[in-house]
Amino acid sequence: MTTEAIQERLKPIVKPYVNNQENFNNLTSESNFIEDLEINSANLVDIVLDVEDEFDIRIENDDMEKMINVEATVNVIQKKLANK
């Protein structure tokens, strides 16, 4: 799956937890979940679990640790899909 396609599928997963709508509307690969989208850290686990369900993958702690922005999250998903 292309980076763009993964990012498109990631958007509706992240959306319910976003507190900065403007930055979400201008989402880029560099958008940081906490700093830019103002997602509360308590919700990061919900996003990780939603990503696992949506892409039918399992994310270990080492990978979860990096999932704080769009690019890193897309990379983790891409790697997991490639290894399926």
């Binding site: 937890y17 308590a42 919700n43 686990v45 679990l49 696992e52 979860m64």
Partner: peptide
């Protein structure tokens, strides 16, 4: 700080694999 009403609305700690990710 955790707003318990908001946390209850947004997160289900009994969801499969939830606790294992944090604890």
């Amino acid at each position: 700080i955790v707003d318990l009403a908001k946390a209850d609305r947004e997160s289900n700690i009994f969801r499969l694999r939830f606790l294992e990710k944090i604890c």
